[in-house]
Design a protein around this nucleic acid. Sequence first.
DNA 1: CATTTCGCGATTGTATACGATTATGGAATC
DNA 2: GATTCCATAATCGTATACAATCGCGAAATG
Lengths: 212, 212
Amino acid sequence: MSTVDEVQQAVMERMLRGELTPGTWLRQDDLAAQLGVSKIPVREALHRLAASDLLRFENNRGVVVPMLTAEDAAETYGLRLAIEPELLRRAVPNLTIVHLAEAEMALAASELKGASVPEANWAFHAALYGAAGWKRGMAMVQSLHAAVAPYVALYTQGLGGAATSDDEHQRILQACRDGDAERACSLLEVHLREAAAALDHVFTEDTDAGTR
Amino acid sequence: MSTVDEVQQAVMERMLRGELTPGTWLRQDDLAAQLGVSKIPVREALHRLAASDLLRFENNRGVVVPMLTAEDAAETYGLRLAIEPELLRRAVPNLTIVHLAEAEMALAASELKGASVPEANWAFHAALYGAAGWKRGMAMVQSLHAAVAPYVALYTQGLGGAATSDDEHQRILQACRDGDAERACSLLEVHLREAAAALDHVFTEDTDAGTR
DNA sequence: CATTTCGCGATTGTATACGATTATGGAATC
DNA sequence: GATTCCATAATCGTATACAATCGCGAAATG
C-alpha cells in the first residue's frame, strides 16, 4: 500500500468517526509529522479526499473541513436514497454468512461505550453493500457517509436517537437474512428518510451547533 | 483558480472527450512540461481524478487510464440510472430558459463534424441537471460519464448509433420544456438502459476493442 | 538457439528548500 | 481608548533535487 493510501485511510477514518468537525483547519505539517512522512504525500491524500468534497482547499489558506448547509445535508441523503437501495438490492442475492456476520459485528460495536456511531453505521452498511461488488458505488456512498459523519455524531450523542436507528438496522438485517431484497430496500428507504429528517433538525433547530 | 484545478480540468476535458483511451500511461513530466508547471500540481490533480477511479496509480509505475470490464461498465450505468433520474426530477422545476438553451446548444454541437460525442453528451445532461443545484451529485455523474467516455466514443464512431441517442435527447428535452418531470425521467431511464445495452455490445462482441 | 541473469536507462515517489501569501500582534495615530 | 497600519511569524504552494523502483535489452550460459 502506498504512502498516500495510508494517509488517505487515516484521515478517512477520522472523518467517518466524525472527529473532524466542520470548520477545522488541517495543518499539513502537523499531519505529516504525526504520520512520519513529508508534506507531499499528505497533500496528495488530502486532494483525493477533496475530490469528493470531504475537504476543501482554500487558496493559500490551507485545507478545511467544509461546513454543510441544510441543503448540502439534504442533497447527501437524497443521493444516499438514490444509490444505497440499488446497492442493497444487488447485494442481497450475493450475501454470504461472512457479510451478515460483519454487519452483526458492526451493530454490536455501535452498542459499546465510546464507540463512534457514524463509523459503526458505515461499517454496517458497508458490510451489506459489499456483496454487490460495486466498487465505485461503495466509494461514493462512503464519501457521503463521511460527509455527514460529524453531524450524525452530533445528534446521536445528544439523545438516544441511536436506539430507533439500531432497531431499523436490525430489521434491515433480518430482511437480508431472509433474502428479501425488496423488503430490505423498503426498510432502508424509510431508515434513510428518518435519518435525513433527524439530521435536518440539527440545522433548523434553535441550536446553532450545525452552523458553527 | 488554483494550478491544480487547471490541470485537473485540462485532464478531465480530455477524459470527457474520450481521448484518453484505457491502458494509456500518463507520464507526469510530459504533462507538466505540456502545461508549463512542475510535477507536483500535476500529481495532485491526478490524485483527484484517481479518487473517482478515473485514473489509477500503480506502485512505482505511474498513472494509467484503467481498462473497464463489462461489469465495470454495467456498474457505471447502474449508478447513472440510480442518480441521474433523481437529478433530473429535482432539476425540472428549476429549469430556466438558460438551462434549456445550453442543452440545445450541446445537442447542436454534437451534430458537428469532429465533435466529441461523449463530451457533448455530458454537456447536454449537465445543462439539465445543473438546475437541481446538487453539486456532489453533479461531480459523481461527471465522473461516471468520464469513465465510460472512451467506450462511448468507440461505439458512436463505429456506426450511426448517435442518431437514435440524439432523438432520445430531443424527446427528453421536450419533456423538460413541458415541465413534465416524470415523463422526462422515464425517457431518461429508457435512454440510459439503451446506452448501457449498446455499450455492453462493445465488450461482448467479437471485436476486442473494449479489452485492448 | 533458448533462457536466465545482470546492468543501465527511464520514470516514479518523496524529501528538502524556497518564494508567496496570509494571519497576528504591537506600535503609532486619530 | 479605539482603530489603522506595518512588521513579523507561520503556513501554504510550487519548484528543484535526489533516492528507489521498475522495465527492457544485452550479454552470458546451458
